[in-house]
């Protein structure tokens, strides 16, 4: 058995120090807020679990969480198949491969706010090219029709984040040895059979990373709906994070916002843990076997 030197953990101390100032101490404050009705540091009232009862029974908030879940699932259903499809048809080598990679990754390096304002102008029916053209086909107005607003945010998310799936899947595809393809060719396997029985099993782990990264990111989506629709029309795109900001910064209701944040944080914790467990499952199994 390998002996481990646990002294290396001391090298993590600076990070712990920084994180405690940027995350842990604010989190403690949030937890304090969640149990009180705070008017000012001198004027506050202990209310126990009241805010938690409020939050978990508030239809507005439950709706917002459902909307976030729905949005994440729709985003995944579009982005994962689309990402795989694009990665499969991308050039495999030479300058074309590099050019394709650069072209695909452009959306990933544009700042979120810029993406928001670009799409905001692009989709307007009076001055935007996209909105103008869509209006020739059907009545498209993302500022008044909830379905259009939702569709637009979904389109922005797909445009912004499918490249991440493409890059991950592309890297996964390149790591499959040529011998598998040659064996498939000798057997006369169809293109679909190659995908189903050679590529898909080999892509399993990469796809898991893509799936969970994309799920987390789209679940916490904030900037795009904030810039483009502001949570509207009505509350069609008021996702959990948008509503949280409205409660915390808009209404300055720090007690409710504190309880809300803790529940949101717990959800993210659970998902991150599942993410981590699934990713490290194979390594752990091997580790136990060697011992």
């Amino acid at each position: 058995m390998k002996t481990r030197n646990n002294k290396a953990w001391f090298l993590v101390l600076p990070v712990i120090l920084v994180v405690s100032f940027t995350a842990l101490i604010p989190l403690m404050t949030v937890a304090n807020y969640a149990l009180q009705d705070v008017f000012s540091p001198d004027n506050r009232l202990f209310v126990g679990m009241k805010w938690f009862y409020d939050i978990t029974n508030d239809p507005l908030i439950i709706d917002a969480f459902q909307r976030s879940f729905q949005f994440s699932i729709q985003a995944l259903l579009i982005q994962i198949p689309l990402g795989i499809a694009i990665a499969r048809i991308m050039p495999k080598s030479g300058w074309k491969a590099s050019a394709a990679l650069v072209a695909v990754s452009i959306p990933l390096i544009i700042p979120f706010n810029v993406i928001g304002s670009t799409w905001l102008i692009f989709s307007r029916k009076d001055i935007g090219l996209g909105g103008f053209l869509l209006n020739k086909l059907f009545d498209f107005d993302f500022t008044s029709d909830p379905k259009d607003g939702w569709g637009l945010i979904l389109a922005v998310d797909v445009w912004h984040w499918t490249p991440l799936v493409v890059l991950l899947v592309y890297a996964g595809l390149r790591s499959i040895p040529q011998a598998y393809y040659q064996a498939a060719a000798i057997d006369g396997a169809s293109s679909f059979a190659v995908f189903r029985y050679v590529e898909l099993p080999k892509l399993r782990r990469v796809l898991l990373i893509a799936l969970l990264l994309r799920f987390m990111d789209s679940f916490m989506i904030y900037t795009e709906p904030f810039v483009i629709t502001g949570g509207g029309p009505g509350d069609a795109t008021t996702f959990a994070s948008i509503l949280l900001t409205n409660i915390a910064v808009g209404q300055f209701d720090v007690g409710r916002a504190g309880a809300y944040s803790l529940i949101f944080f717990l959800l993210i914790q659970i998902m991150s843990f599942i993410f981590y467990t699934v990713l490290t499952l194979q390594d752990r199994e091997e580790e136990t076997k060697t011992k």
């Binding site: 404050t29 937890a31 009180q36 540091p41 202990f46």
Partner: peptide, 15 residues
């Protein structure tokens, strides 16, 4: 520590 509006239960949990 006044701005952190400490309460006893939260302090106990974190400690």
């Amino acid at each position: 520590l006044k701005w952190m509006v400490w309460t006893l239960p939260v302090a106990i949990v974190f400690i």
